[in-house]
Amino acid sequence: MTIVRKLVPYVIAIIASFAAAGIFIALTGANVFQAYETILFTSFRTPNGFVQTLLKFIPLTLQALAFTIPLTAGKFNMGGEGQMIVGAIAASVVGILGADLPAVILLPLVVLAGVAAGAIWGFIPAWLLYKFNINEILTSMLLNFVSFQIIDLVATGALRDPVAGHPTTVQIGQGGFLPMLIKNPPLNAGLILALLVAAGVYLYTTRTTGGYELVATGANPRAAAVFGINVKRMFVFSIVLAGAIAGLSGVIEVAGVQHRLIVGLQHNFLVLGVIIALISRGNNLAVPFVAFFIAILEIGASAMQRTMNVPIEMVFIVEALVLLFVLLSDVFRRR
């Protein structure tokens, strides 16, 4: 019963935002119901559509977790994008330089390099917060813009693939590829990694002492400090952990999907990740489910743009509206 009652605001939010977007879609002259159908069911029509949805689901889940973990401690990590990019860069540089190594050695190196790079990229705003008390929203966001230049530098530098038109590096060594769960359509083992991370984060925040300290810090930092929790260290830890997870999402894009570094591989995963995290209200258990829903919308949106000529941003507005309506439902519940 309680779970049904919890879902009610979500259902209302989804219906309301679809209705709002329907008006815009009608304005473009497209058939509204056909558009809805395309958005919601493209993922389930073909095996390829479903696998594409899962491939979106992986980075979306990880990006959302990279936001919810610091949020639990009351901090906002807006640097998931940069952390993903440096993770992807480190993974591909290691994958290219160690191309001759066997998979047993190369694959763990690729993954570790990416995760570590993401963690380091997260450590910078965390350290600035710890040491200088600088607002982490700002620094983590600014570092994204720095990472855009770094990826451009790497993809147009010595490792560049000369035949590719778009800035891209050469392929990483075969040993650095993530194993495939399904060959055709290709689905990589990143899915398992993402699910493991999601489960791990959930267990950590709800079942362990460290996770409890994180929650306590977010709930009331002053009270937490009184009870002997090093609040500032929790801030740092949460953002570094988030960076590592975002870095992993970069690793999976490189080692699982593209097998090379491509400028622009971050898409808009950060923004969608934040939307997912906020729709989940920071609840780590809800994150994978919301992420899957958003992945369906994203796949549907690109199909809608292809077949019906309705701009893909339409669905982005739907997602932002769902978020706004879910947030509003909190207000009305309080009354």
Partner: peptide
């Protein structure tokens, strides 16, 4: 949220 809506 407003940031995202504006961007979109």
């Amino acid at each position: 949220s407003l940031l995202f809506i504006g961007t979109g």
